[in-house]
Structure formats: structure tokens, C-alpha cells
Design a protein around this nucleic acid. Structure first.
Length: 510
RNA sequence: GCCGCGUUGGUCAAUCGGUUAAGACGCCUCCCUUUCACGGAGGAAUGACGAGUUCGACUCUCGUACGUGGUACCA
């Protein structure tokens, strides 16, 4: 069996969305499962849609997800270059080879002439006429022109494209790894442009040539490519590479959670969740579109949730590390139907991952987040303890700010509305007495704090629970966080006393 | 319009001819906790429709409906 080589071949036109990352992920998992190589190829054949910075962004996203390619434009490899714009010259010879063998032809039609043809042949039965076996003989191309005329046009540098000549009455079939045998009628496929007027290949030519040259064994891509497979199959055949053709797999689409359609880049803002792996800044509109990374997703959770969107191991397990996925993954278990993206489930994956990872692993990223939120951090052992205490309450990494800031500074806002109904003179007395009793403590240990608190409550004949609630409001300022005695212990005796003192003063004035 | 692909609870999904049709997310109830979570125990909710094959169909076949993709010198 030949070496497994998969590729991820995005166009650098903007942010990398969920579907793209998933295609990369499946390609990566499949390659790694079979001890193969995962290649990144940049398909920048469309000059008009090219966006500078997008390529580096793609590389960064893959790195963040832990899907680093074995070969690619930024690292090289034996089949370099990996950027199609840099391979421009090599495509033309193949296009010419096809003209030579009669499987392709020159077409000189202008945009206007093409539009006119579409207009002329338009009917209710056929609202979108194609450049195909029914119309090609009415157009301006090397099939309708004499050899002399063609030579003439070429000699005076008339712009031209090279189109594939789709055969009539052929059934083109192939086996898709996910969907099984798929048949297409060649009559229904148009004469796709292979080489554009600017000399660049279209996707159709480029993908075949590069997959061949780069020895790709398995080609995965989105389901939207299914209709053009016949063109690609024929190209492999006409170029004489049939035996080297990769195994195809067309991945199901990721759909919008509401309404209908393929999940698009614009759905993010509209529906309030990210669709890009990382923040994407659009220079044209000067807008930044939020990414999963910046929103506080762990890369482990991100690829985990993506993997399960269209693939299922067959077991009940849902949480997978990348290594586990490599072992469990198989193309046979990828679904045929599209999946609607569910952000709630995505959050659940992240929450599970945060709960599952040790505080130490989480610390670097959480530290960065806290620092950028201007939280006055203490030493690392202290931070580590705090993270251990609160991480289970964080759905996003960024939640650490809200969940832990009161460990580092007195609460900025106190929910007095929640306190007042429960406040009374005996409570005030209790807390001022508590400050005093805490002062008597030789050591500041959790057990001692709790005992002191409860003994005093019993003495004063006040329900412990009620006092604990108030104590929480004093220390945290709101109704959340871990056990109050944990918090008091962690922030220290002085700070605890000072927060009680502060409230005692404040409560009289509000 | 035509062509391709698809269709199990609201969502992700198991099942590969015989089950009370798993499990997860979300939702609801209760327990734990006078906080927010976590955790625990329960609950509601499903085979698009119609034929056919078969002793038996969610599973196979066909049709219909619906969804989705394509129908570019974009990928």
C-alpha cells in the first residue's frame, strides 16, 4: 500500500471557519492514523479574492489547533512550492497537453459573449445554460475556428482560456469513502475552464495537478465539491494518471443552527457565536471577527467538538484527546448528512475540558487572561490554588477573571440588595465580634476559621447558613464562588477582617 | 428548472432485519449547597410520508415530500 498523504488546501481569502478546520482535522487524523503525512497547500489562484495575511493566519490557526502540517509553504518539503501561485508555470503544460490530446480546447469568448450566450439560451426549462456540448459549437473556440484562425488569434495575444471538452453520453462513476459509488452523467457537466486568461489554473486543474505531483493518496474536502468530481475524474484519466488518483471523501456540511443553509462566516455575529478558529481582522471593513481562541476555548476542546460534528466513534465516549482521536478515527464512521452547529454543546465541550485539565496546565493561559484584565496577581503557587478552587466554574478560559478576581482584590461591587433583607443588628454584632475572634487565632487554618465562625454563630443563636451567605457577600460581593471558608483562608486573616470591616461601615450608609 | 447529496427526539447521535430505539447537549423536577457551579436521582421529547420486499423493517428497494449543495475565467 502506498504512503498515506493527505492535504488541507484552503484559499487565503479570509478567516478560517469551522468547516475548514474540520476538514483539516479529519485529514490530519486520517494521515496520522496511517503513519502518513499531512500537507498544507495554499490555493491562491484567484488573484481577486486573495487577502494578504490570510495565509499566515491559516498557519497560526492550524498551529493553535495542534494540527501542524508535515509539509507546507512555511516549512517546505520535497514537493515545494506549496503555494499554487508559485507553481503557476507548471500548470500550463498540462493544459496544453490536454489540448494536444483533444480533451481540451482554446476558447476566446469574451465576458460579454458568454453573457450573451447565457441570455440567448435561457429558458424556463433551462435557467442557467452552460458552456457544454450543446453550446460549444456556437462559440468562439478552437473547435469552431480553423487552425489558422486559432494560430492567428494566439499570435496577436488574444486573451484565451482553456476549457475541458466534456464527453457526451458517458457515465462517470467513482467511489467516495463516505458515500459509496456515485454516478454522474457527463452530458450535464459543462466545459469547465482549466486555465484562466491570466494564466492561472482554476481549482479544477490545479487540484488535480497538485494532488498528482504531491502524491496525495486521500483527498478530503467539503460536500460542495461533489458536483464537480466528474471533471476531476476525467482530468486524472486524460492526463494519464488514473492509477495514481487519490481516494476521495466528501465531508458533510456544517449547517446553521437556526434556519437553513451552510454555516457561513457571517452567521457568527448574527447568532452570537464564533465561526472562526481565531480572531480575524478584516482590513477592508476594519472589523475584527471573534474567534474561538479569543473567546476562551481550549484548542483541545475545539478540535474535540469539531471531530464529533460529523463523526462518531460508535462508543459512548465523547471526550477525546487528539491522540485518542487518531486511534479511534475512521472515515467509515463519518456521517453522510450535514450537521447543525450547536453552540451550547460546543460550550459543554470546553467546560468539560477545563474541568478535566489540571490547574497547572491551565495556568499559563489563565494567567495571561488575568493579567490583561489588570488583575493584581500574586505569586504562582497562590494563583495555582485559586485556579484549582474555581476552574470547575469556568465554561470559558476567560471566565477565570470573574470567578477569581476577588481572591486578588476586594470586590469592586457589592450586591447590597441581596444583603439588606438578611441584615439585622444581631448580624452586625456577630461580624464585629468575628473580627475580634479572628484576631485571637494563632494560626489561620481552614478548620480554625470554620470552627470559630460556627461556634460564634451558635453562641449568638443565629443560623449558620444565613451567616455564611452574608459572609460570602462580604468576601465575594455576589452570590457565587467556592466555599466561603476556602475563600477566607486563601485571602488571609487581614484581608478577611478588612472586608468585614468595610461592609460594617458601608451597610449603615446605604 | 436540471443534476448531485442527504433525512432517527429541538441539536449531536447509537443501531448495520428481531432492542422497552442507546448515550450526550439543552430543557424540566428533586437531592446536595442558605451562593454560583460541580455532582447525584428522575422526567418530557425521536425513526419525514407512502408503497413494496420479508415471518419480521429505523435498518433493504422504489416513489413523494422536505432539506442541502452545484449549475462562474470563486474556491
Amino acid at each position: 500500500m502506498r504512503e498515506v498523504r493527505t492535504r488541507f488546501a484552503p484559499s487565503p481569502t479570509g478567516g478560517l471557519h469551522l468547516g475548514g478546520v474540520r476538514t483539516a482535522l479529519y485529514s490530519y487524523l486520517f494521515a496520522k492514523k496511517h503513519q502518513g503525512k499531512f500537507i498544507l497547500r495554499i490555493e491562491d489562484t484567484d488573484q481577486n479574492r486573495y487577502v494578504s495575511g490570510a495565509e499566515q493566519y491559516i498557519v497560526d490557526c492550524l498551529a493553535w489547533c495542534g494540527l501542524s502540517p508535515d509539509e507546507g509553504p512555511h516549512i517546505g518539503g520535497e514537493h515545494a512550492p506549496y503555494r499554487q501561485s508559485e507553481r503557476k508555470e507548471s500548470y500550463k503544460q498540462y493544459a496544453l497537453q490536454l489540448v494536444e490530446s483533444g480533451h481540451a480546447y482554446y476558447a476566446f469568448d469574451t465576458t460579454e459573449e458568454l453573457e450573451k450566450m447565457r441570455e440567448d439560451f435561457k429558458s424556463t426549462q433551462n435557467p442557467s445554460p452552460q458552456y457544454d456540448h450543446t453550446t460549444r459549437m456556437k462559440m468562439k473556440n478552437s473547435l469552431t475556428l480553423t487552425n489558422e484562425e486559432v494560430k492567428q488569434l494566439l499570435a496577436i495575444n488574444t486573451p484565451y482560456v482553456i476549457r475541458i471538452s466534456m464527453p457526451a453520453n458517458e457515465t462517470i462513476s467513482f467511489t467516495d469513502m463516505i458515500r459509496g459509488e456515485i454516478k454522474n452523467d457527463s452530458n450535464l457537466v459543462d466545459d469547465k475552464v482549466l486555465l484562466k486568461a491570466d494564466g492561472m489554473p482554476t481549482y479544477h486543474l490545479a487540484v488535480v495537478v497538485d494532488d498528482y505531483l504531491m502524491k496525495i493518496s486521500h483527498a478530503f474536502r467539503g460536500e460542495e465539491w461533489l458536483p464537480s468530481v466528474p471533471v476531476h475524474i476525467l482530468l486524472w484519466k486524460y492526463l494519464g494518471w488514473e492509477n495514481d488518483m487519490p481516494h476521495w471523501a466528501h465531508l458533510p456540511l456544517i449547517l446553521k443552527p437556526d434556519g437553513h443553509g451552510k454555516l457561513s462566516k457571517r452567521d457568527g455575529d448574527r447568532l452570537g457565536f464564533p465561526v472562526f478558529a481565531m480572531d480575524w481582522h478584516d482590513d477592508k471593513t476594519n472589523e475584527t471577527i471573534k474567534g474561538f481562541k479569543e473567546l476562551g476555548f481550549l484548542p483541545e476542546a475545539f478540535i474535540n467538538l469539531l471531530a464529533l460534528l460529523g463523526w462518531h466513534s460508535g462508543e459512548e465516549k465523547e471526550l477525546f484527546t487528539k491522540e485518542e482521536m487518531i486511534v479511534a478515527f475512521s472515515m467509515e464512521r463519518v456521517h453522510k448528512g450535514g450537521a447543525k452547529f450547536d453552540y451550547e454543546k460546543a460550550k459543554w465541550f470546553n467546560h468539560e475540558w477545563i474541568k478535566g485539565l489540571p490547574a497547572k496546565t491551565l495556568m499559563p493561559s489563565m494567567q495571561t487572561i488575568l493579567l490583561s484584565a489588570d488583575i493584581p496577581l500574586k505569586d504562582e503557587p497562590f494563583l495555582l490554588d485559586v485556579i484549582t478552587l474555581v476552574k470547575d466554574r469556568c465554561v470559558f478560559l476567560n471566565d477565570i477573571v470573574m470567578q477569581s478576581s476577588y481572591f486578588f482584590q476586594a470586590p469592586i461591587a457589592i450586591d447590597f440588595d441581596a444583603i439588606k433583607p438578611k441584615w439585622a443588628d444581631d448580624k452586625a454584632l456577630f461580624f464585629s465580634e468575628l473580627i475580634h475572634q479572628f484576631s485571637q487565632l494563632d494560626t489561620w487554618e481552614m478548620q480554625g476559621i470554620e470552627e470559630t465562625f460556627k461556634t460564634l454563630a451558635t453562641e449568638k443563636n443565629i443560623k449558620v447558613g444565613e451567616l455564611q451567605f452574608l459572609f460570602r457577600m462580604i468576601l465575594v460581593g455576589a452570590k457565587f464562588g467556592p466555599g466561603v471558608f476556602d475563600i477566607a483562608y486563601k485571602i488571609g486573616k487581614e484581608e478577611t477582617q478588612s472586608r468585614i470591616q468595610y461592609l460594617l461601615q458601608k451597610i449603615g450608609t446605604v
